[in-house]
Design a protein around this nucleic acid. Sequence first.
DNA 1: ATGGTGGGTGGCCCA
Length: 262
Amino acid sequence: MRIATWNVNSIKQRQEHAVAWLQETKPDVVCLQEIKCVDEAFPREAFEALGYNVAVHGQKGFNGVAVLSRLPFDEVTSGLPGDDGDVQSRFIEVVVSTSEGVLRVCGIYLPNGNPVDTEKYPYKLGWMKRLKAHIASRLSYEEPFVVCGDYNVIPAPEDAAHPEAWVNDALFLPQTRAAFREILNLGMVDALRTTTDAAGLYSFWDYQAGAWQRNNGIRIDHLLLSPQATDRLRAVGIDKDVRGWEKPSDHVPVWAELALKA
DNA sequence: ATGGTGGGTGGCCCA
């Protein structure tokens, strides 16, 4: 079972890329972020034609998350618990049944948090606190469970080509990294980092200043695994070549292969 | 070097 995450930066702009990438890599479950459209405008037919079930939690213009799955959804819920006043569409959770039991997947678009001297940074930290509480609650189920998406967190200096450029940024501030570590300390495992300590593995390159051409990247798209999912982890990858396609997203897909038969 | 680029919207915000 291959589970992938990809911030597409507008599904309308990236529909053809998404179809080509799905046909090439055939993931079983895909979490998409920054779809930037309302539910009704999501091009679900394009993905249904490839055999995917589609769950969407959209929003006009900004944010928006979706899940594509070859297996039917047993459950779909959206909205991160803990703040009824939060109207931003950044969280969706699904459950599918494999031949070896259930798999729970949360797709997240964690707030960016910049500029840090505005209300945006406390919103990010509050969102991370709510995410931690939700994950803690789900871990009690003792299921294979994956929380993947655009975390907008650079976990460590080796996850940036130029870490010194990020020291005052919401993606790398000590408080941000500490909040991310608190989630790991619950028992969640960073799929990529548990398989390699290599530096220079990135998932995002800014559109500006030739960041892609200079390989000035950061690793901010992550798959965090419950202990029961970690036990089944077989491979992790970053589909870096997608960043070199015509009119790309600024993020590329990241995926994990779990030993779970559909 | 306080710009640069690319997505949304609607007469600027967000990343």
